[in-house]
Amino acid sequence: MQSRFKQAALFSIKLLLSIAVLVYIARGLDLQRLRSHLVSVDPLLFVLALSLIFFQTFVLNGRWELIMRALGVSLDWLAGWRILMISLWFNQVLPSSVGGDAVRMWLLRQRGVEWPEAVKGVAADRFTALIGLIALMVAGLPFLLSRVSDHAAILAIGGLTLAGVAGTVILLTLDRLPKRLIAHRAIASFVRFGALVRFLLLQSERRALLFGSALLIHIVTAAACFALARGVGAQLSVVDAGILIPPVVLLTAVPISISGWGVREGAMVACLGLAGVPSEEALSVSLLLGAISVIIGLVGGAIWLASPERGSYSADKAAKAAEEAPGYDGLGKEVSSHP
């Protein structure tokens, strides 16, 4: 009962934060102009953006399949994609304390995958995506310096990028620290996880394909945002989309709101504003991107309704099983943010 109360309280706080941020952003905007952008978006460009995000699910699944194979788990491509789509349903449409990652682990377990491999596979998938995002932000810094004159914004994005690089380097090299410093059980989980990700990216046979897919996923997101921006009449260049959308994605991944709503909108308005995009148009891009995420989630929901596992599913059991799985307490919760 106490656990359910905590879950409800956490969900309520996230919901209130999402609503509060959206209301705060909307206060200073021309709502009629915002509505005009939303209803008059070029349908062809909206469909293009939707197609890109749907295509992204195949790339996501391909990356995850590579990771599972490196862990010695043979995951059928179609089965993996079905599990991934179901997890997006839970993440986007029915946000809860369980989340899509725990559901992914649970579904893997139903297919006979042991908990350690399920946890490692999902967590490594998340962190590999994060590394790809940080790599794009590092590559975009020179362009950011040459195209943006707001020193405070450059400092903020640059600091966020450097923090990401430092965090990644520390995690990947934890096992090189003296044994006495990493002997604690909680730290040991991160040490093993860092060694696993380092192996995947530096030593596995498919490392180039794995890292390339991690980059491609975020490039596709930037391309979808570019299409949506053009669809609402915003003058956003390809280069600006490439350097300003990754920070938006990174901030959206912080699990403090419902499926990133509110945080994504605030970050999109702030970042696209650096390229001269009016707030109403930037917010339209974010809301349309959110709508696309919901549509993709609904596809996952339809797949879930037809799934044989649905009859035996229990949110409480999935959450409890995931929390009891080896390593989940030390790394799963840390990296299971919105993609």
Rank of each mutant, 00 (worst) to 15 (best):
Q2H: 14
S3K: 11
A9M: 10
K14Q: 05
L15H: 07
L15S: 15
I19W: 14
L22V: 03
Y24I: 10
I25W: 05
A26C: 14
L29I: 01
L38N: 10
V41F: 06
L48G: 08
L50I: 09
L50F: 15
S51V: 01
I53M: 14
F55M: 14
Q56R: 11
N61Q: 13
R63H: 04
E65F: 04
E65G: 12
L66Q: 06
I67K: 03
R69Q: 14
R69N: 14
G72P: 04
V73W: 11
S74T: 12
L75Q: 11
I83L: 08
I86N: 07
L94T: 13
S97H: 10
D101S: 13
D101Y: 07
V103D: 10
M105Y: 09
M105C: 15
L107F: 03
V113Y: 08
G121R: 06
A123Y: 07
A124D: 01
R126Q: 14
R126G: 08
I131M: 13
L133T: 03
M137G: 07
V138Q: 09
I154Y: 01
T161C: 08
T161M: 05
V169E: 12
L171Y: 01
L177A: 14
R185A: 14
A188G: 10
S189Q: 11
R192K: 01
G194H: 00
L196F: 02
L196Y: 02
Q203S: 15
S204Q: 04
E205M: 02
S213F: 05
L215Q: 02
I217P: 08
H218M: 06
I219Q: 15
I219A: 15
T221F: 13
A222T: 06
A222Y: 05
A223T: 04
A224W: 00
C225A: 11
C225Y: 07
Q235F: 01
L236K: 08
S237V: 01
V238C: 04
V238A: 12
V239P: 01
G242C: 02
A253E: 09
P255F: 01
S257P: 00
I258G: 05
G260Y: 01
G262F: 00
R264F: 02
E265D: 12
E265A: 06
A267W: 03
C271D: 11
S279H: 05
S279D: 11
E280V: 03
L283C: 02
V285R: 07
I296R: 13
L305S: 13
L305G: 11
P308V: 02
P308E: 10
R310P: 00
S312A: 15
A315M: 12
E324G: 07
A325K: 05
G327A: 13
G327V: 06
G327S: 11
G327E: 08
E334W: 09
S336P: 10
H338P: 15
P339R: 04
